[in-house]
Simulated assay, not measured.
Amino acid sequence: MRNIKKEMKKLASVYVEKPHRVFSMYLNTDPSDPDQQGREWKIHLKNGLNSFENYLKEDGNREEKRNFKMVREMVENYIREHELNLSKSIVIFATADQKVWFAERFQMPVVTEFSWEETAKIDQLKKMYHQFPKTGIILTQKESIKVMDAELGTLKDTNVFELDLDTEDWKEHTGPSHNQLSMGSGGRSTKQDEFQERFEANRYRWYKRVAPKLDKLAKDKQWESIYLVGDKQEAEDLKSHMNKVITDIINKNMLDHEEKQVIDTVMA
């Protein structure tokens, strides 16, 4: 996913003169929206595009009409390509010469609107970014920590840190968790009790060792907001060791939940 903050700066500086125009589109495609149960977004898209085309027919500027048809084709091709994998919204900015082409699907709601003007209409995008800027979501659950890098409700990257109980070092890896306690049913509760006691005795010190890694990620990813999600005491311990400012703590164990559900919880 592109750097939205940089893209907004570029879009804000765009100005074109007739017969060129910038097409701006915010399309609500949220399947959970009661008004979208019959995929009404298709009708809104068609009506929005047709209204500009009809206006340009009456206006009589052939070159501008041709430019709009080129943009319309680009937009409809993008929609067709991604129709089976939509999120809550689609945002597009485009010019016929493709000097402007921004097309993204977001897990954030928008109010459907279209414009064909000298400038890109970025007000809604700015509002969306203000609500969900570059964000780090750090999920803690005992000896496992999952880090989600997100922006405008969309997951960009994940990192997983797990504590090696033999060396007491935090190791970064991708893929499923490796530190699950595996044992026969007869020894499970005893092993878990022993681990719980050891974790509680060492949690503060162990989290102190991983905090600099999380601070570095926050700096590298340029997070503007950071959320800690997990057991309140674990999150508080981690927060006390981090240099970066924590936006909020969400007292829920969600390390094994789907990323989309975690993002929705943070956005709520």
Rank of each mutant, 00 (worst) to 15 (best):
K5R: 13
K9A: 12
Y15N: 13
V16K: 04
E17F: 06
V22M: 07
L27P: 07
N28V: 05
W41H: 07
S51C: 08
S51G: 08
E53F: 00
Y55T: 07
R66I: 10
N67K: 01
K88E: 09
T95K: 04
T95H: 01
E104S: 10
F106Y: 15
F106S: 09
E113H: 11
T119H: 12
D123S: 12
L125P: 02
H130C: 06
P133A: 01
K134V: 00
T140D: 03
Q141R: 07
A150L: 02
T154I: 07
T158M: 06
E162L: 03
L163E: 11
D164M: 04
T167Y: 00
D169T: 14
W170Q: 03
K171L: 14
P176K: 06
S177Y: 15
H178T: 15
N179T: 15
S182F: 13
S185C: 06
G187E: 14
Q192H: 09
F195Y: 10
A201D: 12
R209Q: 10
V210G: 07
D215G: 04
K216W: 02
K219T: 11
K219H: 08
Q222S: 14
W223P: 01
E224V: 03
I226D: 02
Y227K: 02
L228K: 01
D237R: 02
K239F: 05
K244T: 14
I246A: 08
I249E: 05
I250C: 05
M254F: 09
E258S: 10
K260S: 12
Q261N: 12
D264K: 10
